[in-house]
């Protein structure tokens, strides 16, 4: 089972290594990881998608919480949160196929951010399923390259993570 964790950490050198090292040495699987500064420049937020049952999740949360530079760890259940990832897809496109690709991009509300005589670069945001769906649709045109970000997530409604520390 996949779980999405929002982890507030001190924005200091080496913190990412502390977190990723913990996952590797204790044998936890990271599905995706995204890091960025929060509204407070002293604090970074990691969104970590981790694979495992409830026991593994409990261990991950308590082991993460033991790291001195980790300020808070919150589990974001999918029913109570929104999450997005972003992918850039470079797809082969010539005079004959360009129009159809643009149409597919439009259906997925994806953006064209680069164009050449032989390629298009498409930016798409969404959950994992949506990104996989557009990849499937573009496959037959010839995908040259794909790059994805880790997933980022927020609670729905007024709820936030980390409370007082932010």
């Amino acid at each position: 089972m996949r779980h999405t964790l929002a982890v507030l950490v001190e924005n200091k050198p080496g913190v990412l290594a502390r977190v990723s090292g913990l996952f590797s040495r204790r044998g936890y699987n990271i599905d995706s990881l995204a890091v960025g500064m929060t509204e407070n420049p002293e604090i970074s937020r990691m969104t970590i998608v981790v694979e495992g049952d409830d026991r593994v999740l409990a261990q991950v949360i308590s082991q993460l919480s033991k790291l001195i530079d980790v300020i808070s760890v919150s589990d974001l259940p999918s029913s109570e949160s929104v999450d997005r990832g972003l992918a850039l897809i470079k797809v082969a496109a010539d005079m004959d196929t360009r129009a159809e690709i643009l149409q597919i991009a439009g259906i997925f509300r994806a953006k064209i951010i680069d164009i050449s005589a032989e390629t298009l670069v498409i930016e798409v945001t969404g959950d994992k399923g949506k990104i996989r769906a557009i990849e499937n649709m573009l496959g037959r045109f010839g995908i040259k390259e794909v790059v994805r970000t880790g997933r980022v997530a927020l609670h729905r409604g007024t709820k936030t993570v980390g409370g007082e520390y932010r």
Partner: peptide, 8 residues
């Protein structure tokens, strides 16, 4: 004292 030891 260490919550990570519980059910490890």
């Amino acid at each position: 004292i260490d919550p990570a030891e519980i059910r490890k």
